[in-house]
Design a protein around this nucleic acid. Structure first.
Lengths: 199, 199
DNA sequence: GTCTATATTTGGATAGAC
DNA sequence: GTCTATCCAAATATAGAC
């Protein structure tokens, strides 16, 4: 038998994708607890019971949304940074990475924004199972920061925490529209690398 | 009639305070949706129905917790910053303010940490009613930032967003213990004012 | 694969006794 | 002021028909 055409998924996989895409969007918009399986099913054009053909529980759905969210960000940042020439200045690598992370979070993927938005709301067991993947992604950021010569008294672990906190909190105000992703990436880089005060 | 002794509140006010203190602690620990009124009442040594003598709804309780959370931070930062001599260097004012905010968030008040933790989880109406007070507090930060001469191309509104995001996200990792509040305040100030890279 | 129907639990909220 | 008892709505999850 010939394989199915590349553009169309088998029915089950197709439904699964619709459910996950919709869940990511609703979680991003409304938070974890506010989205019931009835809401989710209705938004997919299904009934709640049908979800259980594809997933064993709400936890399983949200765990998959979280996982894909980090993976997308990881991929986008890697795709932007890895091809840069070896001799690229650390600050330029940094700016490109920040831009890729912000674009994924703010413009590209509901999965990533859902991840940031609901991570603190999901059941502790789900959160615990997700930590390892988050850590792997954050290690990529540590590697980038470690290419810089550090100012005296600066702990690079704290810089990474500050940076990730500042990047992810853009989700809470980006829609108010004071700046574009390009603006934010550029200025965030300048603030972290050289400070916001006139030299 | 003589007023009651200063250290003891009237019974109703006392119960109200117990409920709010306990709610703040539970919200901080478990999030908004995870705390039921039965849980809250039990932790206060009461039954769920009794809460309704003091508050009309769960929303009213959480709104009060949010309000007190910002007020405490506002008070602590004002108390630390306002008495400084007029000629104090902007960077020193900044450091003192960051220290006061972080200490309130990380060591002093369950209300403030609950606010940061659950703000994104409460019903939209509660959030909307709370925005004005948050804005007033953030204006205090804008005033401090505006005392600095800015580097070229820097929008002080973005700096304020980055700063508040970085400060509040400490809540997610402070318990892992890589640094004290003093360390964090010192290094956060240095990173924002002069950057983390060796000059 | 998706449906209908329903079991089961849990939540916020109310009424009235004490 | 706090209790007991209860209402009502909503949630996750399951069973079995189609």
């Amino acid at each position: 038998m010939a394989p199915p055409a590349a553009r169309s998924l088998p029915a089950a996989a197709e439904s699964r994708k619709v459910i996950l895409d919709t869940a990511a969007r609703l979680f991003r918009e409304e938070g974890y607890a506010a989205v019931s399986l009835r809401d989710l099913a209705a938004a997919c054009g299904m009934k709640a019971g049908s979800l259980y053909y594809h997933f064993a529980s709400k936890d399983e759905i949200v765990a998959e949304v979280l996982r894909i969210g980090v993976e997308r960000a990881f991929e986008e940042v890697s795709r932007a940074v890895d091809p840069l020439p070896k001799k690229t200045a650390p600050a330029e690598v940094f700016r490109v990475a920040v831009h890729a992370h912000l674009r994924t979070l703010l413009e590209l993927h509901d999965y990533t924004s859902a991840n940031i938005r609901i991570f603190g709301q999901v059941p502790p067991a789900v959160r615990a199972a997700h930590i390892e993947l988050r850590d792997a992604y954050e290690r990529k950021w540590s590697d980038m920061l470690n290419r810089f010569p550090l100012a005296a008294g600066i702990d690079p672990r704290l810089v990474r925490f500050f940076l990730i906190g500042a990047m992810n909190s853009t989700l809470e105000w980006f829609h108010t529209g004071p700046a574009t992703v390009d603006d934010i990436a550029e200025q965030l880089t300048q603030v972290f690398v050289r400070g916001f005060v006139k030299p």
